Simulated scan of single mutants.
Amino acid sequence: MVFFAKSKDTDLVIQAPFAGEVISMNEVPDPVFSGGMLGAGVAIRPSDKESEIIVHAPVAGRVANLFHGGHAFALVTTLGTQVLVHVGLDTVELKGRGFEALVEEGQRVKAGEPVLKVDAALIREAGKDLVTPIVGTDKSQVSGTEVQAGPAEEGVKIATFTLV
């Protein structure tokens, strides 16, 4: 009997969900994210000039969860890796104001496909930081992150998650 070793993809490329400044997770002003409690990742902060932001899928996958209030969503890739996109800090407190889902749970999306429409002006007026963490939530699958910090346009590579 012949056994074939399972081919292992060791990298998951993360694309910028919108244009902005890419920062490492330890720079996110929230200990849940900066402390890695939810997993390894990267974050991006949109320009202060934007009044509306379209958040695009940073990877291809199935929309596993659209969080109540629309402030976050999770995608599951074909490799089974879950990627959480959390738009802003403490934005759950807005109870959906300023967020519009453009997809449905269970829907498959391509990297770069629009997922959320965000009223950035409303969120800033509410005193919320729009820094957006993108996290590989399964710590047993994501062993590390290589971040490409600095300015980035929507759709460009901003990080690589190393998969176990």
Rank of each mutant, 00 (worst) to 15 (best):
P46K: 03
A57M: 01
F33H: 09
A5S: 09
L116H: 03
N65T: 07
K6F: 14
D48P: 12
L122A: 12
P114G: 09
V32N: 00
V63G: 13
I53E: 03
V85E: 11
K6W: 14
P114D: 11
I14Y: 02
L66H: 15
L66G: 03
T77S: 15
I14E: 05
P31L: 09
T77H: 11
E105A: 14
V92D: 00
A121M: 14
N65F: 15
A121L: 06
F73N: 04
A64F: 11
M37I: 12
V85R: 05
P114I: 08
I54N: 04
K110R: 13
T132M: 01
E93S: 12
R45L: 09
F3W: 05
F3C: 02
G88A: 10
G98W: 07
A149W: 04
G106V: 06
G80M: 07
A101H: 05
V28T: 13
S7G: 00
L66F: 06
F73Q: 03
D138H: 05
T10H: 07
T77F: 10
A19E: 01
R97F: 10
L102Y: 08
E21A: 12
E27S: 14
T162N: 07
K110S: 14
L122G: 08
D129L: 02
V142I: 00
L79C: 00
E113K: 02
F4W: 12
S47F: 01
F4G: 04
